[in-house]
């Protein structure tokens, strides 16, 4: 089992400034999964009760000189503590900056090398696995070892892969939330009112979030959102109704789905904004199995989707609702 690669400048800043802060909010520990072409950070895929998040990078988005080999179809997976990973990358960046890096970027000699190693830690008789970060400078080299779990067995990797495959199902209707900050702001304040959130998504392009307890009903409806997938025209007679009755009628017609999720999970998924996505889509999986949030990233300076990076979350549904 071997893994060795150089983290590019772009990859370093993607991870350090954007993805690791976001992923750290999803949970301290995650699976890091390397395949021949991809690097994937996975949360809660094998243990089912939290928010699942999947951040996938094509190897060129993060690395060059990417070398991987294992007897398991060149796949390696383990769990890693994200805050340690973040700290290692951050200090490598600062070392690099102190060394006045940037002069010989082209030579590739002082970039950040990542390697999977087994080492005998001090006061121990058993070698343990580490992900090693090596920043080579002009005169010195700094090596940081981030402890990781034992690599997953062949069976566990297969299970992880099949969970990953299953998590790729797209909802039939997705609506685009143009202003994630606005939604986050709103949800941050709503958090104080209740713990459970009803989410309705219609084929007309409505996203309706609502808290309903015995004492209060508090909701927000965003209309005329961009719809991807199955869509319908808003029936004319619905246009002037209240948000609640409109949603109710849409559900009855089969043009909308409602699910209930935990407010905590929803707020957590919004933390993905730290990865600075360019847009976000919300959808409800078939039979109301989960609430899916897909974040998209544009190729810098364009409005074209960057297919080498993907991030999406799946929120467990507490009550399959009316679906």
């Amino acid at each position: 089992m071997k893994f060795k690669a150089f983290l590019t400048d772009n990859g370093t800043s993607l991870l350090e400034k954007r993805f690791l802060p976001a992923l750290d909010k999803m949970g301290k520990v995650c699976h890091l999964y390397f395949t021949r072409d991809h690097t994937i950070f996975l949360h809660n895929l094998l243990n089912g009760d939290g928010v699942q998040s999947i951040a996938q990078f094509r190897k060129e988005a993060l690395f060059d000189n990417y070398r991987i080999s294992s007897q398991n179809d060149d796949r390696i997976a383990f769990t890693i503590d994200l805050s340690l990973l973040q700290r290692a990358i951050r200090s490598s960046v600062s070392i690099y900056a102190e060394m006045g890096g940037g002069d010989d970027v082209g030579t590739g000699s002082n970039r950040l090398q990542i390697k999977l190693v087994k080492k005998l830690p001090p006061n121990s008789h058993q070698p343990l696995p580490f992900l090693t970060f090596e920043s080579k400078g002009y005169k010195s080299a700094v090596i940081q070892d981030v402890p990781i779990s034992k690599p997953l067995s062949r069976a566990d990797v297969l299970e992880l892969q099949s969970a990953l495959d299953m998590a790729q199902d797209l909802p039939r209707t997705l609506v685009q939330v143009p202003d994630l900050n606005q939604l986050q702001n709103y949800v941050d304040r709503m958090k104080h009112v209740g713990d459970l959130l009803n989410i309705s998504i219609s084929k007309y392009g409505d996203l309706h979030v609502q808290i309903s307890t015995t004492l209060i009903t508090l909701g927000a409806e965003f209309r005329k959102l961009l719809v991807v997938g199955e869509q319908e025209e808003v029936p004319a007679e619905d246009r002037d109704l209240s948000a609640q009755s409109r949603t109710q009628r849409a559900v009855q017609r089969g043009d909308a789905q409602t699910v209930q999720v935990s407010m905590k999970h929803f707020a957590k998924s919004l933390q993905c904004h730290l990865a600075k996505p360019d847009c976000a889509f919300y959808g409800i999986a078939q039979e109301g199995a989960c609430l899916t949030v897909i974040f998209q990233f544009f190729i810098p300076g364009s409005r074209q989707n960057d297919k080498s990076i993907s991030l999406h979350c799946r929120l467990p549904v507490l009550d399959p609702g009316s679906s």
Partner: peptide
């Protein structure tokens, strides 16, 4: 706002 509406009913 026409396209985003917040509402509440307090008992």
């Amino acid at each position: 706002s026409m396209d985003a509406c917040i509402y509440a009913e307090i008992r």
